[in-house]
Design a protein around this nucleic acid. Structure first.
Lengths: 341, 341
DNA sequence: TTGTAAGCGTTATCAG
DNA sequence: CTGATAACGCTTACAA
């Protein structure tokens, strides 16, 4: 049905290897026949079989991407960066999502392996930590986005944002506004990002001379519902916090909604800071103060690194840590006057 | 490097075809050797080469997806549906995005063709309309999500939401609230969805006895910036509209933001209705009234249809039109008292 | 129950 | 410059 190199050869009256060469624009083929073959291929609607090519070449010009959920705006933005960079480099992208289920995550990697992708990029997952050794024998380099590998091997590396710095900036901003009781709503447990952001939070508090209060750290989910649930916990504390730093924007937005539903004014009663700067952060009301991650760049750099790692262990390639910046919006544009301690 | 079927054969002391059979769980292989081979494969970390398999089988168990931008929340949700359904059916997904550039769109399809995907799903693109004949000779069935094909062939079909109905419901809702001057902000030009939604809008107005006023139809972009730009145009009209129906939620959200920036109260000064019901529609303030598209299901059904179309022209398979429903929220929860005509 | 051999569509080596 | 030929990893008749 589909036209192959042999079909063209037959019609052109040459051998299939000549066709292969002509199509590859090789210089060892008569310009005349080359042109003839190429137009013929065009006319017949020839499309090279990537599978067959991959078989002999040993590389597929494909990178596999594993995400938790593509509907997460942060992840979508990273994927966009990946897709763009990959396309620019002549690579295509196979996307698999895991819904954060370890079983599916593993299945996803297995599929990518079968497809013989040249590299794998994993975003915001715990797979790096959990299946480190499994990934090692994948055969392809692995780049972790926003997850720290337990130990970066020669073939698995990470590109992350400076989470600790982000947490530090966010919290310091609140301290400077006069807040004295500042809470932190976490993301999913066991996520390295979360710990780093929390470390930045702790560091800022300590530096400001506050005794970190463990009750001010309440668990979230990394999604809006986590923020919503967190509010009631926070409001039951005594005295309640006057400000909250959230693991990410989705959490902050959930918290924001719950706060409004509970009749709390933001930032007057509760100042809120998020993390990520997803597109919607500026559309909620009040617009959200947040630490802006260079999401698109995160994806780009991951591809860049993957490409470099593909041809053997590369010298001079190490984990990349990008800097983001605090974007101050209305959810914190008020000095805190309440003394709580 | 990677272990093949032959490597296993050699170690097991059998022929590679026996290994192939054992791994395929064929009944024509001695249970004992089968077990032996399978555990051996396991131990060696064997992973079948999908490319080689595709070569001989003529099918890859892969569907290709072409989107405009994955960061569009509506599209992300559809893709999630696609991914889930495909995974459940044992298919994997290759994602390509086009940024709405026809050149990239074509390149994307070309890549999918090379990868010999078993089907192609195209979301919210104009490719269906523009390259219909190109798609015809793709060799794989094509399913269009939210785009109508010029003429559905045996191999290209569409699954859409009832856009006209949505536009009609949205507009009728505004009419029932007492609005008399209702504007429509379009999406990208030439998109069939857009026309259908507008038709529903027109129909509702006509039915209410209003003369459709062409100046009330202002162009958008399908993104937030389109809505933002549209506001100034709308406010320069005389008399200005008291309500607006937008092509989609992103447009509505942009409009909402611009309205607030301009000091307009929503819905008191301007009622706004969107389309899609993206997750954020309920988080903006005021929460957005909108026509809820079954996004996930759209993706699911597309896969279902693609699967059916894969084995030759299927009887009884035709375009699918899903029904959504109006979700009334605060952006329209007020009767209009202004008489404008 | 197992092995041999052919073939899927490429690229690459080696003679001519 | 060009054509055989082998090879990539797999499935599947066809024989044994």
């Amino acid at each position: 049905m589909t036209v192959s190199i042999k079909d063209i050869a037959q019609i052109a009256g040459v051998s299939h290897s000549t066709v292969s060469r002509a199509l590859a624009d090789s210089s060892l083929v008569n310009p005349g026949t080359k042109a003839r073959i190429r137009t013929l291929a065009q006319e017949l609607g020839y499309s090279p079989d990537a599978g067959a090519r991959g078989l002999v070449l040993g590389r597929t010009r494909t990178v596999g991407v594993v995400v938790t959920i593509i509907t997460d705006p942060f992840i979508a933005e990273v994927v966009q960066g990946i897709e763009t960079a990959a396309y620019a480099a002549g690579y295509s992208v196979i996307l698999t999502s895991s819904n954060s289920e370890p079983k599916r995550e593993l299945a996803a990697v297995e599929i990518l392996r079968s497809k013989r992708v040249d590299a794998v990029i994993v975003t915001s997952s715990r797979i790096g930590a959990l299946y480190q050794n499994y990934l090692e024998r994948l055969g392809a380099p692995v780049v972790l986005v926003n997850t720290h590998s337990a130990q970066s091997g020669h073939y698995t590396m990470a590109v992350t944002v400076d989470n600790r710095h982000g947490g530090y900036l966010a919290t310091t901003h609140l301290v400077e506004l006069g807040h004295q009781r500042i809470a932190y709503v976490t993301g999913m447990a066991d996520h390295s990002d979360d710990l780093e952001r929390m470390n930045g939070y702790r560091q800022a508090l300590t530096q400001a001379g506050f005794e970190p209060d463990p009750t001010l750290i309440v668990p979230g989910t990394g999604r809006a519902n986590g923020g919503e649930r967190a509010l009631s916990v926070l409001m039951r504390l005594f005295p309640p916090p006057t400000a909250v730093f959230c693991y990410n924007d989705m959490t902050a937005i959930g918290l924001l909604r719950a706060a409004k539903a509970a009749g709390l004014a933001v930032p007057a009663d509760l100042a809120i800071v998020g993390f990520d700067d997803i597109p919607f952060a500026s559309y909620v009301c009040p617009p959200l103060t947040t630490y802006c991650q260079p999401k698109f760049e995160l994806g780009q750099r991951a591809v860049e690194m993957a490409l470099r790692l593909m041809d053997g262990p590369a010298e001079g390639v190490g984990d990349v840590v990008l800097q983001g910046q605090l974007v101050v919006r209305e959810s914190t544009n008020l000095l805190c006057t309440r003394r709580t301690q």
